[in-house]
Computed example of a mutant assay.
Amino acid sequence: MAILSIFRNRQAEVAPQASVFGGLLGGYSIEVMPRTAAKIDSFREFLPAGTRVYIAHIDGTPIEDMVATAKRLTDEGYVAMPHIPARSIHGKAMLEDWIARYVNEAGVEQALLLAGGVASPAGDLASSLHLLETGLFDRYGFKRLHVAGHPEGNKDIDRDGTTLLVDEALKFKQAWSERSNADMAIVTQFAFDAKPVILWAERIAAAGVKLPIHLGVTGPTKLQTLIKFAVSCGVGPSLGVLQKRALDLSKLLTPYEPEEFLTEIAAYKLAHPESLIEQIHVFPLGGIRPSADWMNQRLLEDRIAAR
Rank of each mutant, 00 (worst) to 15 (best):
K244W: 08
K244M: 13
R245V: 05
R245D: 05
R245E: 04
A246F: 04
A246E: 11
A246L: 14
L247G: 11
L247F: 04
L247H: 08
D248W: 10
D248S: 14
D248K: 12
D248M: 12
D248Y: 08
S250L: 04
S250V: 05
S250R: 13
K251M: 15
L253G: 00
L253P: 00
L253E: 09
T254K: 15
T254N: 13
T254Y: 08
P255R: 07
P255F: 03
P255M: 06
P255W: 02
Y256W: 11
Y256N: 03
Y256K: 05
Y256F: 12
E257S: 08
E257T: 14
E257W: 01
P258R: 14
P258V: 13
P258F: 09
E259Y: 12
E259T: 15
F261P: 02
F261C: 02
L262Y: 12
L262N: 08
L262P: 10
L262C: 11
T263C: 02
T263L: 06
T263S: 15
T263H: 09
E264G: 01
E264A: 14
E264N: 11
E264R: 14
I265H: 06
I265Y: 08
I265S: 11
A266T: 07
A266L: 11
A266V: 07
A266P: 05
A267M: 06
Y268C: 08
Y268A: 10
Y268E: 11
Y268I: 09
K269W: 07
K269Q: 10
K269G: 02
L270V: 10
L270I: 06
A271M: 07
A271P: 02
H272D: 15
P273A: 06
P273Y: 10
P273M: 09
E274D: 14
S275R: 13
S275I: 14
S275W: 09
S275P: 13
L276A: 03
L276N: 00
L276Y: 00
I277M: 09
I277A: 01
I277Y: 09
I277Q: 06
I277P: 03
I277V: 11
I277G: 02
Q279M: 05
Q279E: 11
I280C: 10
I280N: 05
I280R: 05
H281M: 08
H281L: 11
H281Q: 13
V282F: 01
V282L: 07
F283Y: 13
F283Q: 10
F283I: 12
P284R: 03
P284A: 05
L285P: 01
L285W: 11
L285F: 14
L285V: 03
G286L: 08
G287C: 09
G287L: 11
I288F: 05
R289T: 13
R289W: 14
P290Q: 10
P290D: 04
P290Y: 08
A292F: 06
D293Y: 00
D293G: 00
D293N: 06
D293T: 00
D293Q: 01
